[in-house]
Simulated scan of single mutants.
Amino acid sequence: MIGVGILGAGGIAERAMVEPARTVDGVEVVRIGARDPERARAFAERLDLPAWGDYDAVFSDPRVDLVYLALPPIVHAEWATRALEAGKHVLCEKPLSANGTTAAAIADTADASGRRAFVGFHYRLHPFIAELLATIGSGILGDIQRVAVDFSIPHFVVKPGNIRLDGDLAGGAVMDVGCYAVDLLRAAWGEPEVVAASARTYDADPRIDLQTDADLRLPGGVPASVRASFLGDDAGAMEVRVDGRAASLVATSVIVPQWGATLTVTSPDGAVVRELAVDPAENSYSRQLEHLRDVLSTGADSILDARRAVGTMRAVDAIYRAAGLQPR
């Protein structure tokens, strides 16, 4: 049994850890911790969790094997380090940390402590993403000509007061949804080079990008565009398009496949070569927990490993610099 302790009593903790843990054998949430213990108590009582307290109560609980950081990325390095040094494994809610430097510090501390650190790119564990990556790598598209990623949150979702609009908490569109795009590009093609970027910033905090458009170059010289946005239309977008000489691929709902992801491959004459739709019963957060249970039990490698995620944060830093903004 993997005992999980949570730092942070927000909605993501319930959605990404408490609910899926109830469907996965061998994983149990044993304690919730918050800066305000009373908030943790209310969270525990509402969700019928066995124990609550402050952050130190999580670190000192011998039943806790894995600490999940459901906290803003600006504090991930501090609390991940403390958890690792307390002998716990760590899962950081994405992104791994505020920037490439602090992300590397988490990976270094994990190595030094003999514990594991992971980033919560849950989507990577969904079978749909495995199919997407396999299709891209299969050769069915022919020589890749261009890749376009549009991860845009509907304009009415991220409003004033949201932590994603707070520069002190390492907010911004690239930090929130753009990191998924970078992670996916790295998984499919390898390390991208940032060519150029432009950002539309938030009037109330110019450190925050409401929308960033970046041009990247993938290995082999393939051009890629990435849009990360809080200004999407009413439907938003979680779309990846890959144009090859032999066929084109469009995938939707990539970040959260269980929301109705589809994959369509069409030939130049418009004929459908391949179609795939997701079973909504497949939950990416549950698959993530199953994966972590297994790798912690066996010592196997993980695609969520913090060391790999450092590269994603370094690419995020490069996008911000290219857009004239500072890394977080």
Score class of each variant (00 low, 15 high):
residue 9 A to Y: 02
residue 9 A to G: 08
residue 12 I to Y: 09
residue 22 R to Y: 04
residue 27 V to G: 03
residue 37 P to M: 08
residue 38 E to S: 11
residue 38 E to L: 14
residue 47 L to K: 12
residue 54 D to Y: 12
residue 56 D to Q: 14
residue 59 F to A: 12
residue 60 S to G: 07
residue 62 P to F: 10
residue 72 P to S: 13
residue 74 I to Y: 06
residue 76 H to E: 04
residue 76 H to Y: 10
residue 83 A to F: 07
residue 90 V to W: 04
residue 93 E to H: 14
residue 100 G to W: 01
residue 105 A to M: 11
residue 107 A to M: 05
residue 114 G to M: 12
residue 117 A to D: 10
residue 124 R to D: 04
residue 126 H to E: 06
residue 126 H to T: 14
residue 128 F to M: 12
residue 128 F to P: 00
residue 142 G to R: 10
residue 143 D to Q: 14
residue 144 I to P: 01
residue 144 I to Y: 00
residue 147 V to M: 02
residue 150 D to I: 13
residue 151 F to H: 03
residue 153 I to T: 04
residue 160 P to H: 09
residue 173 A to N: 02
residue 174 V to F: 01
residue 176 D to F: 13
residue 180 Y to R: 07
residue 182 V to S: 02
residue 188 A to Y: 01
residue 190 G to P: 02
residue 191 E to D: 11
residue 191 E to P: 06
residue 193 E to K: 15
residue 199 A to C: 02
residue 204 A to Q: 04
residue 207 R to W: 01
residue 209 D to Q: 09
residue 209 D to P: 03
residue 214 A to E: 04
residue 215 D to K: 14
residue 220 G to W: 10
residue 221 G to H: 11
residue 226 V to G: 03
residue 229 S to D: 03
residue 231 L to C: 05
residue 240 V to N: 03
residue 240 V to M: 08
residue 248 S to L: 09
residue 266 T to F: 09
residue 269 D to L: 12
residue 274 R to Q: 11
residue 278 V to Y: 00
residue 280 P to Y: 01
residue 287 R to I: 05
residue 289 L to W: 01
residue 292 L to A: 05
residue 295 V to Y: 07
residue 296 L to V: 08
residue 296 L to T: 06
residue 300 A to D: 07
residue 301 D to L: 09
residue 304 L to E: 02
residue 308 R to I: 13
residue 326 Q to G: 05
residue 327 P to V: 06
